[in-house]
Each structure stands twice: as structure tokens, then as C-alpha cells.
Design a protein around this nucleic acid. Structure first.
Lengths: 220, 220
DNA sequence: AGTTCTTGAATTGTATACAACGATTTAGTA
DNA sequence: TACTAAATCGTTGTATACAATTCAAGAACT
């Protein structure tokens, strides 16, 4: 770190700076699953003392990106097939709830946001920029979740998605035709617009499941 | 603390001892919502240094029992009506999923456990021991959740329930006839035994909702 | 050769000192 | 008296030193 890459980080506690930095490195694969996070090494590399490093690691643990073993330190969370299945199932359950509630509470403004979000996603797909694809896809789903209006569900979904983000990223990388995802989003938008909540739920379930299957296959 | 109340705590890192102690105090009302957790005061009271206190507080934050404000320290999480609603809704969503899956995966052994758990709950109700009631009720629901077999869902449900435990506790305290709960459990058991997953889901939903309404009313 | 014990290096756990920041109180001025 | 500014005090944020534990390598013994 040494100097602030980001101006806004200058006012954050160092533990949050450490958290954001390490989170980035884990999500985008610089730190690999199972890799050990040693406090002294990290504090030297990041140019801070061990205290904020320890606290940053605790924040990562909270998000499920790191696991800690007493007296054995912290490791980047690696995931078994079973764990992946469990997370995806939990996500599907909560996001299904979200889209259902979303149908009941959708407004004109939100509906426009939804279309806008998928337009951005389509552009990202066009540009073949993986990072942008991942971000705009997340943004699309977030509009649905925001519309549902349950903050706790949102919080849980963010955490669940982070835990499998790495694998989703890998999955997108090797997808033949990502425009399929854009079309799936469009179908979901249409169902929401028609107030067909049962259909929207079914489409979202399929949308998540097809990704789940691909990720699952890739893990093995 | 000074000396170990519990032998088993002797081998835990101090942060975990602090965590367990404060968790107990928050759940059972010794530390009240909104109360400030000051590091120096706590470290003196618990007889450890600030470091494990800080780390214990971080663990509480992870469970949603404490909220931290930058430069303003930690407070026992207090809950607004909206937040309570959100948590209950999230819980209902996940536990509904759990009971549904439970119906598909129930075994003879698990079914016996379920009946046993409700027998214990009935005894606790008989004894009017609030603490025992809360614990055995949790145990009953845990059998269902364990049978569903999704570890992540279980983890999320534990966390969600902790966040509202205090309020549920208060609710049970003022319930006219807690044997209603025993009978509701019995109905759920029957539906599971008959493999009527739709009915089990409906019953559980009502079981949770009726508590939700009571808690909600009490909050105001 | 294989096994156990010892020893040492590396790492995490804990305590403490100091710095930075916020809130409150007090002093000064209009 | 009311308002602003400065000073003080209490609290959190960070750095660092020390203690306890783990892991591994090598010595001693069978």
C-alpha cells in the first residue's frame, strides 16, 4: 500500500483498507483458495502493523472469504462441492423470495432501472470485459433485490454471492455465448413487467440453476 | 472473569471466552439494546486486555448482536420494527425451505428425534422455566434444519435467530398459554410424518408468523 | 533403520503504550 | 446572557513488545 491508491480510502480506518485490498485480491484470484494469510508478511507487504491486518482478516471471515483456525491462522476459504451446493441453494431460496416480493412492489422508476441495468450488462458482454460483466450482472440482480426492500435479505445475498464469486468469474470466462444471460434477464424483466410473479420466480430459478450447474461441473 | 467459570473455556482463546460471555449477557438481557460497549471498561471487568475484548466484539458483530460505528465504538444492536420484520421474513423464507427439504429427506431416526425434541419442549413448558423453553424450542427447530442437511442455511438461520432471540424471550415470558406451541409442533411433526410437505410448510409459516406478530406488537 | 525427545524458528495470542480523534466543558468575548 | 473558541478528557485506532504455542528438523536412543 504505502500510499493511498484511492483518495477515499484516506479517511477509512486501516482495517477497512486492508479488508478492501485483500477482498479484491481474493475475489479476483490473486490470492488463491487455501492460501495462508500470514499476519507479519501481510503487514509488511501492506505497510501497516499487525493490528489492522488482524482486524481486516476478521472482517473477511465475517464475509465468509476467509476461515480461521485457532493458533493456525487464517486461510483463504476454499470450497467443497457440497458447500458450493449449499450456498447456491441458500442463494436461490432467498433470491426467489426477492423476485417474488419485487413483483409486488415494482414501480415505474424501478422498472426503468431494471431495463437500464440490463442494457449496461449487454454492453459489458459486448465489450468482452469480464470484470465489467461480473459487476453489471451483479447490478442487475441488485435492482431486483433492492425493489424487494428487505435489507437483511440483501445483506445475506451479498455475502452468499461473494463466497462463490470466484467460481462464477471463472465460469463466465469460459462461457461460449454470454448473450444468453442478457436474454434470460430480458425474460425476467418481462415477467416482472407483466406482474407474473410465478413466472418470474421460475425464470430466475432457472437462471441461477443453469449457472449453478456450470460452476458445479467446473469445480470437478 | 479472573478465573474460569467453565473448565472447557480454559483452552479457548480469550477472544472466544469474551465472545461467549458477552453473547450470553446480550441474549439474556443483562446488556440492553443500545448500550455502549466500552473496551477499557469491559477489559477491566473481564480481567483481560483490550485486544481480546476488541476481537470478541468483532465476533459479536459478525453474529449481528453488535453494531460498530467508526470512532464511536460498539453498541449492543437495537432493532427497529422494520429490521425485525426483515429478519423474520428472511427467517421464514429459509426455514420454509428447510422444512420442505426436511420432508424429502426425513428418516425413521430423525423422525424419532423430532418427537423426542418436542417431548423435551413440552416438559420445559410444564416446568415454566423460560430458559429451558427457549433452548428446547430451538432444539426442535434445529432437528428440522439438520434433517434438511444444508449447512449454510443452518448457519444463516442460527445467526438470524440470535438477532431476535431477546425479543422472542420477552414474548414467551408473557404468553398466556405456551402449550399452544407444543401443539403446533405436533401438527408439524404429523405433516412431516405423512410426507405432506405443502402442509408442513404452511404450518411452519403460521407457527413463525404468529410469533412474529406477537413480537412485533410487543416492540411497539 | 525407526522412533521418540529435544530444541529452535516461525507464528499466533495477548498486553500495553502511544497517537488521533470526538465530545464536553470551560473560558472569553460581545 | 448567549455564543464561539480553546482546552481537556475519555475513547477508539494503531504500533509494538512479549508470551505461548505449533511445527519441523535433528539428536539420541532402542
Amino acid at each position: 500500500m504505502g500510499f493511498y491508491e484511492n483518495e477515499e480510502d484516506a479517511f477509512l480506518p486501516l482495517r477497512d483498507v486492508v479488508f478492501k485490498q485483500l477482498r479484491e485480491e481474493i475475489l479476483y484470484g490473486k490470492l488463491k483458495p487455501g492460501e495462508r494469510l500470514m499476519e507479519i508478511a501481510l503487514s509488511e507487504r501492506l505497510g501497516v502493523s499487525r493490528t489492522p491486518v488482524r482486524e481486516g482478516i476478521r472482517l473477511l471471515e465475517k464475509e465468509g472469504l476467509v476461515v480461521m483456525l485457532p493458533r493456525r491462522g487464517a486461510h483463504v476459504a476454499s470450497i467443497t462441492a457440497k458447500q458450493l451446493e449449499d450456498v447456491l441453494e441458500a442463494r436461490r431460496t432467498l433470491e426467489t423470495f426477492a423476485v417474488n416480493t419485487c413483483c409486488a412492489r415494482i414501480t415505474k422508476k424501478r422498472f426503468e432501472e431494471l431495463k437500464e441495468a440490463n442494457k449496461n450488462f449487454a454492453e459489458a458482454v459486448e465489450s468482452r470485459d469480464l470484470r465489467k460483466m461480473a459487476d453489471t450482472d451483479t447490478e442487475f440482480h441488485n435492482v431486483i433485490i433492492d425493489t424487494a426492500g428487505n435489507e437483511k435479505v440483501k445483506e445475506l445475498l451479498i455475502s452468499l454471492k461473494e463466497q462463490i464469486f470466484r467460481y462464477k468469474y471463472e465460469f463466465m470466462k469460459e462461457m461460449d455465448d454470454p448473450t444468453i444471460l442478457v436474454r434470460e434477464h430480458d425474460q425476467i424483466i418481462k415477467a416482472i413487467g407483466d406482474s407474473r410473479s410465478d413466472k418470474a420466480v421460475e425464470l430466475l430459478r432457472m437462471h441461477i440453476d443453469s449457472q449453478a450447474i456450470a460452476i458445479y461441473r467446473k469445480l470437478k
